[in-house]
Each structure stands twice: as structure tokens, then as C-alpha cells.
Write a protein that binds this DNA or RNA. Structure first.
Length: 150
DNA sequence: GCCAACGTTGGC
DNA sequence: GCCAACGTTGGC
């Protein structure tokens, strides 16, 4: 799960009550489908900081809610307001996530690119604009191995 | 339904 | 700050 730390990063999540926050604002259909159709309580995800120097994976979060309609889509005062999302037929979904741990050290995009086990991951596709990408178990393990310096 | 214009993302 | 990629919009 990708976010810009300037907007909402691992420090913001850590500072939230219960280290838990609503992962809102996803406005991409592919990412929406991943949330709505695949995320369930207990699932874990890597937290990735984008648009920062250096970009990379910084922590592990846990999904702690079922997917539910993103309330920020209904609120004209919200930056991600979408008048086309009808509360009766919500277009956008979110989940609540809780910070489980900060990685002992950030796994930079450069390190991810240099890791053979991650070759072909959608995360590393050039100009990846998906804010949520799926990982295989092997890829998950490879990222954690990098974080632990193995 | 096509496609050009436009806006956004995000690495560098 | 630049720029490539790509999703979205809207005129036709």
C-alpha cells in the first residue's frame, strides 16, 4: 500500500489513535477492486513511501476492518470528493489499517529493483501508478529479508 | 466508439 | 523542476 509520507506516512499512522487509520482516498478502479474484493481483517500489507527520497518500503500494516464505502467520496469538502459516488451505490472503498511494525530499516526502491526475487512484480513496473499492488508470499518474504539484511 | 487534450503520479 | 506514462474526460 503506497502513500506519500508528506500526505500520510508511517509517522502519521503511528501517531493515530491505536496506530489505526482509515485508508481512504483510493480513486483507481484496480486498486479499488483489490480493497473491495480481496482485503479482509487480518491481512497484512507492506507500507510503501512514494514521492520521497528515497522511496521504499518502511513498515508492515494489518487490515483491521472489512472493506466499506469510502466516506470521503461523499463529502464535497474532501479533496477526493467524487460526486459520481452515490451512497446508495458506492464507487470507492476503503479499509482501516493498523501499524504492526516499522521495518528495522527502509527497503529502498533501488534495493527492490536489485532483488531477483522481485523481478516482474507490478510494484517495480516502470511508472507504476497503482497505489495498491498484490505481492506473492515469496515476494513478501524477499522484501522482509532485505529489511533484515539477509 | 474514437481519440486528442488534459490531469495526475512518481521517479529522477 | 522535469518529464514519461497512463487514466480520464469530453467533443464529435
Amino acid at each position: 500500500m503506497k502513500s506519500e509520507p508528506e500526505a500520510f506516512g508511517i509517522d502519521d499512522l503511528a501517531a493515530a489513535p491505536g496506530a489505526t487509520a482509515m485508508w481512504d482516498g483510493v480513486r483507481n478502479y484496480q486498486a479499488r477492486n483489490l480493497i473491495r474484493d480481496h482485503m479482509r481483517p487480518g491481512d497484512r500489507a507492506l507500507l510503501y513511501h512514494s514521492n520521497t527520497r528515497p522511496p521504499g518500503v518502511v513498515g508492515i500494516v494489518e487490515v483491521v476492518s472489512e472493506p466499506y464505502p469510502d466516506p470521503t467520496a461523499f463529502d464535497p469538502d474532501e479533496a477526493h470528493y467524487d460526486p459520481k459516488s452515490d451512497p446508495q451505490a458506492p464507487r470507492w472503498f476503503c479499509v482501516d489499517v493498523r501499524l504492526r511494525e516499522r521495518l528495522p530499516r527502509q527497503v529502498t526502491l533501488a534495493a527492490l529493483r536489485a532483488c531477483p526475487a522481485l523481478e516482474g512484480s507490478p510494484l517495480l513496473r516502470r511508472n507504476n501508478r497503482l497505489s495498491i499492488v498484490p505481492l506473492t508470499g515469496a515476494q513478501w518474504g524477499a522484501v522482509l529479508a532485505l529489511a533484515e539484511g539477509r
